[in-house]
């Protein structure tokens, strides 16, 4: 007796499953986009209906128009914020991974230095920023340090925990086969730490952006070579509310792009083996 893979409608079960999966993927994209568009449309309608003045709440269409008229000025500021965010994130990754590895290898170093890392993490960056701005003469470097402080700790702590989370039996096996410290790090500890690192990277990406924006607010910098936070501050002083919203929109877009990139990276690195990224059949 053979088992039929065709249902009563004549379509093969495999084909139906494939169609179902495609529909599911489409739905996941369409539903949030439609919800967002509905919210924007509602916002536009309410502003128009109640005749709300643009210096209180501008309509989305007005924000879009400001984005177009101030495009090059806002893009220059966005590039500054992108540069600051990515550089602080890169430094956080380098410093966090390096120190996290040292922490994982040496308990003494961890016990000695961990309190400093915790102090850096728990002290609000807005409270430290004025001091950094005094001690560091170059504003860009001062902002970079502030953003770095925000992004550094999650990377450090997750790397240290991840490197220690390797399966104890696998550790024993590496000991039995007399693996060198480098082999142990390369073939066991780094892959074991990857899920922790990728989770930290998602958090640190957002924090680096927050750090960059907050630091600039505290610095209160002005002029050409400044970021989106300065545009927001500047617009608030001049009561240019649509411009404020436009700059705010760009900060959100930047945050979303960072989140999407780190999520994609996590999927690319862990998708073929780690539980957090594997899609299960239902």
């Amino acid at each position: 007796m053979s088992i039929s893979t065709t249902d009563p409608t004549g379509i093969s079960i495999e084909k139906r499953m494939r169609r179902h999966a495609q529909f599911d993927r489409l739905l996941r994209l369409v539903i949030p986009v439609l919800t967002l568009l509905s919210a924007v449309a509602m916002w536009e309608f309410l502003v128009w209906y109640h005749e709300v003045p643009h210096y209180l709440i501008p309509a989305p269409s007005r924000i879009a128009a400001t984005l177009i008229t101030d495009w090059w000025s806002l893009m220059g500021s966005m590039w500054f914020t992108v540069k600051l965010t990515l550089m602080s994130l890169a430094l956080a990754i380098i410093g966090g991974v390096a120190l996290g590895t040292v922490f994982a290898m040496s308990r003494v170093v961890e016990i000695s230095l961990f309190p400093f890392a915790v102090i850096l993490q728990v002290t609000p960056v807005v409270a430290i920023a004025p001091l950094i701005l005094i001690y560091v003469p170059n504003t860009f470097y001062a902002l970079l340090i502030c953003a770095w402080i925000m992004a550094f700790f999650p990377i450090l702590s997750s790397t240290a925990i991840g490197l220690r989370s390797a399966d104890h039996n696998l550790r024993d096996m590496f000991t039995m086969y007399r693996a060198s410290p480098w082999q142990r790090l390369r073939y066991l500890l780094i892959p074991s730490a990857l899920p922790y690192f990728m989770a930290a990277l998602k958090i640190a990406g957002g924090l680096a952006l927050i750090g960059a924006v907050v630091a600039e607010f505290v610095a209160g910098t002005a002029g050409q070579n400044t970021g989106l936070a300065s545009r927001i501050l500047e617009s608030s002083f001049r009561s240019e509310i649509p411009r404020m919203f436009a700059a705010l929109f760009l900060v959100s877009v930047l945050g979303i792009i960072i989140f999407l990139i780190t999520s994609w990276l996590s999927k690319a690195v862990l998708g073929h083996w780690h539980e957090s990224e594997i899609k299960r059949e239902r």
């Binding site: 399966d167 039996n169 696998l170 096996m173 086969y177 007399r178 082999q183 073939y187 990857l194 780690h274």
Partner: peptide, 22 residues
């Protein structure tokens, strides 16, 4: 070991290759 203790990030080939690689 009591459990298979395989490296989940590595293929079957790479898991078996590990002792020789080391």
């Amino acid at each position: 070991f009591q459990e298979a203790t395989l490296m989940p990030w590595a293929t079957v080939f790479d898991n078996v290759y590990l002792p020789l690689r080391l």
